[in-house]
């Protein structure tokens, strides 16, 4: 999995190949957490659709980060993916953006 660290490790932009294996995903999050990251942006801008199992992992990630005061954002570009986030109401829980510049600007205001 590729991770791009920005703003002196405050922001992690994550490019996940798949969000299926919760154990592997937790290991990756712990690795990033040790760098002192506060904001996590999962870049799904090149992903056309996700199965609900991966939505489960995203929800788990949101709750996991929230418990320790960290924040999760999603970058989404696909209309089908947007619709699935709306259908499952996940868009009301997790901030979703279609522009990387926009979400980074909002993160940097905090």
């Amino acid at each position: 999995m590729s991770v791009e660290m920005l703003d002196e490790n405050q922001v992690a932009v994550i490019y996940p190949p798949a969000l299926e294996d919760i154990h592997q995903w937790e290991k990756e999050l712990n690795r990033i957490e040790k760098l002192g990251c506060r904001f996590y942006l999962i870049d799904l801008s090149l992903i056309d659709w996700l199965p609900s199992s991966e939505f489960g992992v995203i929800m788990w990630t949101f709750k996991h980060l929230e418990e320790s005061g960290r924040k999760l954002y999603l970058l989404v570009d696909s209309p089908v993916l947007f619709k699935t986030f709306e259908t499952t109401s996940l868009d009301q829980m997790i901030p979703i953006f279609s522009s990387r510049e926009e979400v980074l600007a909002i993160i940097r205001q905090q």
Partner: peptide
């Protein structure tokens, strides 16, 4: 009722849509 479906039928909710 997407909130209820999220707990026990997220996949079915997506199919339905």
């Amino acid at each position: 009722d997407s909130a209820a479906m999220m707990l026990s039928g997220r996949g079915l909710l997506l199919i339905h849509s």
